[in-house]
């Protein structure tokens, strides 16, 4: 297959996805999206991206499966324990001074990061005064996040991460094992609002004290990254916090001046006073 032809097909497929279903992947980092699309094409049984495009345009039932290929990100609870330790030890003392809190887990995928935050806030006695917003563009991923069920074989990694993050309880307090699955306690969702939201096309919806958006921006090109960071800037309360993935930063962003590094090594930033 001529590479140029493939690039044209991908461009057209992403355009079709946007025009027909309003999912905008046109400014996703192209090299990653191409790998994912190749996988989708092969595993969904299409001979070419053009054929996949036709199938998608004429049959909306194919959309969820394609979205899974394009968006689902398998993470771990307390992935990068030092990040959670920094939130716990450096950010939470500031958050304690507020009578009520809003925390946004942006691009929550299947919920691993969300549950990590809720458990940490429960351990720190802040859960009851906090409202958590968990958003993603993929409705199936949001459903999975709202179920909170993970394969049991992933739990040992979660448990070890939790311990290294400075966890004050045992992770096993929060789930029960059930036929090879770990079912997380539904009380962890008492303070959570799940919502379909796109960092690329949707707007600010509440004023936040902390936004955690980890390993989402790396999938965007600079233009989308700036759009998302502008959204975070507009959503954060005065002196609110923004946490990014360990290989993400604000330093290429046009919004960089609106933030100051708060825990530099952990990519935790604080919104300047306005």
């Amino acid at each position: 297959m001529d590479d140029r032809v493939e690039d044209i097909e991908i461009q057209l497929l992403l355009e079709a996805l946007f025009q027909r279903y309003h999912y905008d992947f046109r400014n996703y980092a192209r090299a990653s999206i191409k790998r994912r699309l190749r996988q989708a094409r092969d595993q969904m049984g299409f001979a070419s991206f053009s054929a996949l495009q036709e199938g998608l345009l004429h049959d909306p039932a194919r959309l969820p499966r394609l979205l899974d290929y394009l968006t689902v990100q398998v993470s771990e609870m307390f992935r990068d324990p030092s990040y959670y330790r920094a939130i716990r030890e450096k950010v939470i003392p500031h958050l304690r001074t507020y009578p009520s809190l809003k925390v946004w887990i942006a691009g929550c995928s299947e919920g691993e990061e969300l549950y990590s935050f809720v458990i940490m806030f429960r351990e720190e006695g802040l859960e009851k005064r906090t409202l958590f917003y968990a958003t993603d563009i993929n409705p199936d991923a949001l459903d999975a996040a709202a179920r909170g069920i993970y394969p049991l074989d992933r739990i040992s990694a979660f448990t070890s991460n939790h311990r290294h993050s400075g966890g004050k309880s045992s992770l096993s307090d929060y789930y029960r094992a059930d036929y090879g699955r770990a079912v997380f306690d539904k009380s962890l969702r008492d303070r959570v609002v799940f919502s379909d939201h796109s960092l690329v096309t949707d707007a600010v919806f509440a004023e936040m004290h902390l936004i955690s958006c980890r390993n989402v921006l790396i999938y965007f090109d600079r233009k989308f990254q700036d759009r998302a960071i502008g959204l975070f800037r507009g959503s954060l309360a005065r002196k609110g916090f923004l946490g990014l993935g360990s290989k993400e930063s604000l330093h290429f962003s046009e919004h960089a001046d609106a933030f100051a590094p708060f825990v530099r090594d952990e990519k935790i930033y604080q919104r300047h006073e306005q």
Binding site: A29, S32, N215
Partner: peptide
């Protein structure tokens, strides 16, 4: 490449990192 991240080259010859499987 940083450990635990894929390193990709974009068509505009910038680097992308990813946490794909």
């Amino acid at each position: 490449a940083p450990s635990d991240y894929h390193m990709l080259v974009e068509p505009d010859r910038t680097i992308s990192l990813s946490l794909d499987p």
